Simulated scan of single mutants.
Amino acid sequence: MHSFEGGRLRHAVLTLLLLIFIGSAHASQVLRVGYADFPPYEYSDQRGEPIGSFIEITRKVLKEAGFEAEFVALPVSRIYLYLKEGRIDFWPGLAGIPDLQDHVLESRARPIRISLRIWHTPPTPAAQTLSDLVGKRLIVINGYTYSGLIYRLTPANGFELFTARTHESALQMLVHGRGDYLLDYTDPILETLKHYPVDNLQSTVLRERLGAFLVSRKHKHAEAVIRKTDQAYESLIRRGEIRPLEGH
């Protein structure tokens, strides 16, 4: 009798340990992936589901690497914070962000290229450089650091900033004369213009940025995750399932 009960107990313990092991292994393969409102690359559809060209690349790459993606929509500033704290594991974002350099591992892969522009409408003259914006009213997007550029745009340096919550509200501010210039990326503005057209909107390129996959250093297997991500990206390129960025 005691032998039978002991056998049942051992079986129950082994089953429990196996379930814990399986659950732990599964959890280690799930990545919490942050994404921002940055159309057409990453944003939420009307149902709140993540969509966009960079999202689709990310899905393919993580699946190829053996990971399951758990997407979380966040403001850009919250993405930075959560990567630092380890509350998200992964972000399809931008390479070379100064504020994140000590907190993330960055992929070799460069899936996208984006351009940052200075937007205006006549009769306001075109601005070619940041120095042209000194003493002018400059509209910026809330939460954007523009890869660290925002830290140079201070009142002490002669800049007067006005913050917009969205790309559309930023354009509205520009149209209604609540700012002289708008600092924003090309593609989100082009997407916004599809439903909020602006007559005679003009711009000049300030700088170009490359996209990358970023992994929080707080993830216990961060180095393995970034290595598998790069390997998966390269495999998909070789098979023709992802188009390589020209020059990379």
Rank of each mutant, 00 (worst) to 15 (best):
K228H: 04
K220G: 05
A224C: 00
R217I: 03
I237M: 09
G247Y: 08
S3C: 07
Y181L: 15
K84N: 09
I79C: 07
G52T: 02
P92W: 06
R207M: 15
D99Y: 08
L16I: 13
G179D: 13
L245C: 10
A212G: 10
A222V: 04
S169L: 02
S235F: 00
A12G: 07
G48Y: 05
K228I: 02
E160G: 04
A222Y: 00
R10V: 12
P125F: 07
I97T: 13
H176L: 12
L17E: 13
V134Y: 04
F21G: 08
V198A: 09
G6F: 09
D89W: 00
D89P: 04
E234W: 04
A232P: 04
V104P: 02
R10I: 13
L236Q: 04
L130T: 05
E70G: 02
F67Y: 15
F54N: 04
L201D: 09
S77I: 09
G52Q: 03
T192Y: 06
E5M: 13
V134N: 06
G247I: 12
L236K: 02
T204S: 12
L161F: 04
H248A: 15
K220L: 06
D184I: 10
I114G: 10
W119M: 14
R8P: 00
L17V: 13
I242A: 02
A224Y: 01
D99V: 10
S115F: 08
N200D: 15
G148Q: 09
D187I: 01
R217E: 03
Q29F: 03
E241G: 03
P244C: 07
P197A: 05
E70A: 12
V33S: 00
T58V: 05
R217T: 05
P155Y: 08
I20M: 09
H248Q: 10
F4A: 14
G240K: 05
K84L: 10
P50F: 00
A73H: 14
G135V: 01
L206N: 08
S235Y: 00
G148P: 11
A73V: 07
I20R: 12
R117W: 05
H120A: 14
R165C: 02
G93R: 07
V13P: 06
I141G: 01
Y185T: 15
E246Y: 05
A109R: 02
G93Y: 03
Q101F: 08
E49L: 10
G23Y: 06
S131T: 06
E160T: 13
E42Y: 00
L133M: 07
Q46H: 10
G143R: 00
E42F: 01
T58G: 01
A232F: 01
V140E: 06
A109N: 04
A12K: 14
D199L: 09
R137F: 02
N200I: 05
Y82D: 12
A27C: 08
G86S: 10
Y233P: 02
